[in-house]
Amino acid sequence: MIPAPFDYVAPSTVDDAVRALADAGEDAKVLAGGQSLLPVLRVRLAAPTKIIDLGKIAELRGVREEGDHLVIGSMTTHYDVQRDSLIAEHAALLARATDTVADPQVRHRGTFGGSIAHADPAGDLLAPALALDCEMVIQGMDGRRTVAAADFFEDFFTTSLAPDEILVEVRVPKHTGWPAHYEKFNRVAQAWSMVAVAATVRTDGDTIAEARVALTNMSAVPVRARGVEEALVGQPATAEAIRAAAEHAAEGTNPTVDANADVEYRQHLARVLTGRAISAAMAG
């Protein structure tokens, strides 16, 4: 199928993009990597009158260091995230989750910021962003503002981005050297996550010093597994301690029901996969 007709602009600066978005009004869509948007346009589930393509804005691509943060441009592709040496060192969790996103072709086009702004509850980068306490840097006509990941995701496919705002970069607190794992559970390789768990830990000798755990697709928005984190801290890094902590994984979750999983099964999976994610992370 072919998308319905639309106008197209590809501004070369963020300022121009924001202006174009403000001018275009409600029926405009921002095009990042397009790997979710274009299929939706093709089957005509959406028919925006204007597409604002961020693809020509060089300043939105790339990863840089700023003190104790990494700053990831929203248009940095999944492929580049997977291979970025700064991310590997300071935010390995993002790279491991990105490894599981869609397929190689999609990872060549799809972008880090696009996935986060799309806010699909089964998207694989939301939970890692939440687990790492990322901050979303947003630009609109009134300038820039920063929103914590915990406040950014509001509902299914809904974020705190206003219609005339663009996600320009994501600030990631460095978790230097923290081993990480993203445990994804789906029925076939191409399918979305039924449940997935993002986990990264810092050990101090044989003791778990800190842990960051968040869940994909266990609610309308990604869920931070605080109960698990608290149960892990100060514990010896043993299978038993991990298992006990993982029992808290489903607390506060409110998963949807579909043909693949009901609530009970999803919550069960959350517990099992959390244990596996933490163990795998610690195994390096």
Partner: peptide, 14 residues
């Protein structure tokens, strides 16, 4: 489960 968006692509994203 699945689909263009995992729930309902019509919601669209930003």
């Amino acid at each position: 489960g699945g689909g263009l968006g995992s729930i309902d692509a019509a919601h669209g994203g930003a």
